[in-house]
């Protein structure tokens, strides 16, 4: 059973502003039956078309989806469109006194419905919908995911799933989600090994190829300078090696590793490999 705050329970059991608005100024619709939750938000503006005078919703979903919808309508009534645009999913979660982390996507859905309704009033298309669909199970685009990573400071694929649902179905897009996290966070983590396509090789094949390149090309070159190299481990894309002999004490050993060893391995084995020196 989820640990819902009293406020979530209250807004779920006694939802405010359920229903439709006749001749609304803006309507925002997000989610789908397949996804398990959906929200349709109706906005009515004042005569100057500046301020939201009424908001109503229809929601299909769990308790936190209904509570988030109810909270959203309460929060935006009386706001100008400019003010409403600044409402984030975190604001909705805060209003409800927090949501379980697995349910954060419900607050994200609220915010997206609000944006969709405002865009609908203004007659513009939301840029978010135009991104590349990353998660096919739940139809989430890269732009939506990137924004969630940025705004909610997400660090792991699991967090991205909690907030956007992306990756919560078949899980095929998890590698892509990690890439997006890396992209947003400017982390220079290696790209994961693609699970399909011509470059795919088993770990054993990879290790054998690495050994082969080291033996055939790298070692003879290093030996000329009185050095040597030993393969310690291969962990995903990380190739852990130990430099021996003259190389071990050479000030330029890092350059040798990156400029020479890594380059050779990338050319001949896998372009995503990263060579590191054993810390042991």
């Amino acid at each position: 059973m989820w640990e819902y705050s009293d406020k979530v329970k209250d807004h779920f059991l006694n939802p405010r502003n359920v229903g439709k608005i006749d001749n609304p100024d803006g309507v925002g619709e997000v989610g789908s039956l397949a996804c398990g939750d959906a929200l349709k938000l109706f906005l009515k503006l004042d005569e100057a078309k500046e301020r939201i005078v009424d908001a109503k919703f229809q929601t299909f979903g769990c308790a936190s989806a209904i509570a988030s919808s109810s909270a959203l309508t309460e929060m935006i009534k009386g706001l100008t469109l400019d003010e409403a645009e600044k409402v984030t999913n975190e604001d909705i979660a805060d209003f409800l006194g927090d949501l379980p982390k697995e349910k954060m996507h419900c607050s994200v859905m609220g915010r997206e419905a609000l944006e969709a309704a405002i865009a609908n009033y203004r007659g513009v298309t939301l840029p978010m919908a135009e991104g590349e669909v990353v998660c096919e199970c739940f139809g989430v685009t890269d732009l939506e995911i990137k924004r969630a990573i940025e705004e909610s400071h997400l660090r792991t694929v699991e967090e991205v799933t909690n907030f956007t649902k992306a990756g919560g179905g078949c899980g095929k897009c998890e590698d892509r989600l990690q890439e997006l996290i890396d992209e947003v966070r400017h982390a220079d983590r290696p790209k994961p090994i693609p699970m399909s396509g011509p470059k795919r090789m088993t770990n054993i094949q990879k290790i054998k190829k690495i050994e082969d390149v080291l033996e055939r090309e790298v070692r003879p070159t290093l030996k000329k300078d009185g050095g040597d190299i030993e393969l310690i481990d291969v962990d995903g894309d990380f190739v852990i090696v130990s430099l021996r002999g003259a190389c071990g004490s050479c000030a330029k050993s890092q350059t040798t590793l990156k400029e020479y060893v890594e380059k050779k391995l990338r050319e001949q084995v896998l372009e995503t490999l990263i060579v590191e020196e054993s810390k042991a």
Binding site: F12, L13, D37, F60, G61, I66
Partner: peptide
């Protein structure tokens, strides 16, 4: 049809 299970269960729980 057209309603979600958790919401049903929590209403039943009342």
């Amino acid at each position: 049809e057209y309603v979600e299970g958790e919401a049903i269960l929590l209403h039943m729980d009342r």
